[in-house]
Structures are given as structure tokens and as C-alpha cells.
Amino acid sequence: MLEFQAESLQRHAIEFGEWMVRASNDRAREMGHTGLRPALARLMVFIRWEGSRITDIARAQDVSKNAVGQLVSELEELGYVERVPDPADGRAKIVRYTDRGRALIADAAAIAEELDARIESIIGPERLAELRTTLADICHHLALGPPPP
């Protein structure tokens, strides 16, 4: 039983994911994004560049609209997003990035490159490419994460 616990895919996936979140958030704080916490950072992954409805974000994350609404309110207070009328339906609102939010996304891309380089230094470029493809395939087939662009 101890061998299963030490070598289980679940354990490795969870530990790796938690490391990615911690390392990303630590680096984001170093870059001046001090109010960002993991739940907020995760939510931002589900906001399309042109904006998203709260109902779509909630569905993609499999959480309630109220939970997403609270997180969006926090992101608004931090200045990363704003709620504006949906151009396709004036009755609805969309959440979209502000200039500060777009700057955070640019910083997040730089952080991702740093983390990729760190992982590549451990497993090499070919295995990193395989890891990226394998994880994308798994997520796609399990309908995890935001829909592909």
C-alpha cells in the first residue's frame, strides 16, 4: 500500500499541479501582483480574451454562478477584470480583462516560459513536448479546462 501511495499517478499529478500553482503565484507576487491568490488565478484561465459570461465560466469550472461571481468581484476590486454589457445580448454581462488584467496575462505567459524552462532542465525538450501533448490529450478527452481556441 505504501508503494502505491508513493508512486501513484494521482499523487504525482496533484503534487506537480500544486507546485505549478505555488511557483506561478510566488513569481506573480514578485512581479507586483500581490493580491492574486490561487482561486483567482485559476478563474482567469477560463476568461476568454474577448470576454466571457459568468455562466460560461461557472460551467467550465463546474462550480456555481455565485462562486464565480464572488471571485469575479475580487478580480474587479484588484483591477484585473470588469463587467460590461454583452454586445451580443444587451441584457447579459460579460467579464473581460482590463489593461491591468491583460498585463497580468502577459506576465503569466512569461512565468509559464520560466517554469517550462525549469521543467525542461529536468526532463529535456523532447520529454517536455511529450508531457505537454499527453496532458493536453488527457484534458481534451476528459473535457477538462477551457475549450480549445
Rank of each mutant, 00 (worst) to 15 (best):
S24V: 05
E82R: 08
N66Y: 10
P87C: 09
L36C: 03
D56Q: 09
A106R: 15
S121Y: 03
D116N: 06
H12R: 12
G35Y: 05
H140G: 00
I57V: 14
A108Q: 03
R42G: 04
R11Q: 05
I54H: 02
Q5W: 10
E15V: 09
L71P: 07
R42P: 00
R27N: 07
S52V: 01
R132A: 13
N66V: 13
F46W: 13
N25E: 06
L9V: 12
A106P: 00
T55N: 08
P125W: 07
G35Q: 09
A88C: 01
S121G: 15
A60V: 06
Q70A: 09
Y97L: 14
P125Y: 11
A109L: 10
E82S: 05
V84K: 01
K65E: 10
T55M: 03
A6I: 04
L135N: 09
P149F: 09
R127Y: 15
R127M: 13
Q10R: 13
L9S: 05
G101W: 03
G35S: 04
E74L: 14
V95M: 02
A109M: 07
A110T: 06
P38K: 08
D62Q: 05
R127P: 08
L40Q: 14
L9E: 07
T134L: 12
R22Q: 02
R91A: 14
N25K: 09
I122A: 14
E50N: 04
Y80F: 15
A92K: 12
A88K: 06
D26Y: 04
T133L: 15
I122T: 13
G145P: 08
M31I: 00
A92P: 04
E74H: 12
R132I: 10
R53K: 12
V45L: 13
G51I: 00
R102V: 06
G69Q: 02
L9H: 07
R11L: 01
A13T: 07
I105P: 01
A13L: 11
V45Y: 14
A88W: 02
T134H: 09
E114P: 01
E76S: 08
E3D: 14
H140C: 03
K93I: 00
S24E: 14
L142E: 06
D137L: 02
L131A: 11
P125S: 12
E3F: 14
T34R: 15
S52E: 07
D99G: 04
A58L: 04
A112W: 04
Q70S: 13
F4L: 10
E114C: 04
P149W: 08
L104R: 01
E30N: 02
T55A: 09
P87A: 09
R100V: 11
K93C: 02
A103H: 09
A88E: 08
L36I: 10
L43G: 08
L71I: 11
L128Y: 05
I94Q: 01
E15W: 10
A109K: 15
A109W: 11
E77F: 09
H12W: 05
G124L: 14
A108T: 03
A28S: 07
H141F: 10
A23Y: 02
L2Q: 06
M1F: 08
D99R: 15
V72P: 03
V45S: 10
A39Q: 06
W19H: 10
F16E: 04
